[in-house]
Design a protein around this nucleic acid. Structure first.
Lengths: 160, 160
DNA sequence: GGTACCGTACTCGGATAAGCAATGTCCGAGTTCGTTGGG
DNA sequence: CCCAACGAACTCGGACATTGCTTATCCGAGTACGGTACC
């Protein structure tokens, strides 16, 4: 089980947009060169963020992507769900109902599968930990060690 | 991101072995018919549990699989790591160091990537929640709703 | 000089291939048990 | 009657196909800007 690489790209792209702080759209080509990512594929990934309402896209010349919401209201869980989908990590196939064991269990499957419940507990812990961290907090954490990232990104993108 | 189906199979197979409580090895064919699983593939999956030291395998006739440790000392994290590997869910590619942004960041990458740290926090919560649940507890939870599972499994496997 | 029109350049968006890991299947190595022949 | 040797059946273990998803790429639809001709 490995998380899609697109999640990393998405978070860093969102961070860069937050550092810019501009209301102007940034083309995907600029975001891609910022971290040496394949332009076309990054574009495809960012479309997922648009569908999830985290980014706004402006078509045409002078177009690009910009944050659709303030960074304080974007959590890592939002990003994760946008990229990976909100389906549970553990998909219970209810195999407890199948086979010779399932046939002899009495047929009362109204209560949840104990395995599924246990996995669900862990998954809620994971999702809560993601939901507790906003994009603003992650950016602040990065700024704590490299305070001039805002200006650095602006220069790297040729905005100054 | 979806967890391998083998995890579900593994947990249920371990539970069934725990319900039997026998010291006798159980062939994979028996475990497979218990929940209508493909015998050969389940065998392949259980080999991962053997390598991780959760199961012992006995070759030859009258052979099979049996628990290598008491169920109280087997956690869901053990099972998960055995099946999926202990690599982190979020594999940081350090793209912050690449591209025009990375080149202008000053080159001090001694501190951890903020994105990686944030993901690591969530992952620790996930792993801790898994580690806090033993096989014995999951089995007790299932027994709470269907108290006669021990006998049911024994009969389904033709042990009585 | 001002305005409307047109062509060009640039951007996102979705449709279209390639690579790789998860899934599924098969046969060989090794062990046990029942059988059979001899003492 | 007891014992040893043999053969058959059964089991795990790893090598070999197949499917589905992640990754990657390309071209078309749409938009803004600059130039140009006309009023």
């Amino acid at each position: 089980m490995r998380m899609s690489q697109g999640v990393e790209w998405a978070v860093h792209s969102l961070l860069n947009l937050a550092w810019l702080g501009d209301g102007e759209p940034v083309p995907v080509a600029t975001l891609a060169t910022g971290h040496d990512l394949p332009r076309a594929y990054l574009n495809k990934q960012l479309q997922l963020l648009v569908k999830a309402g985290l980014l706004k896209s402006v078509p045409g010349a002078r177009g690009g992507f910009l944050l659709a919401r303030p960074e304080e209201s974007i959590t890592l869980l939002d990003v994760f769900d946008a990229m990976e989908g909100d389906a549970p990590l553990f998909r219970c196939a209810e195999i407890r109902q199948c086979g010779s064991v399932g046939a002899r269990t009495g047929g009362d499957f109204s209560t949840a599968c104990a395995v599924n419940s246990a996995m669900g507990r862990a998954e809620r812990a994971w999702r809560q930990a993601l939901a507790e961290q906003t994009l603003a907090e992650v950016r602040a954490s990065a700024d704590a060690h490299a305070p001039s990232m805002g200006r650095t990104v602006r220069r790297a993108f040729g905005f100054d």
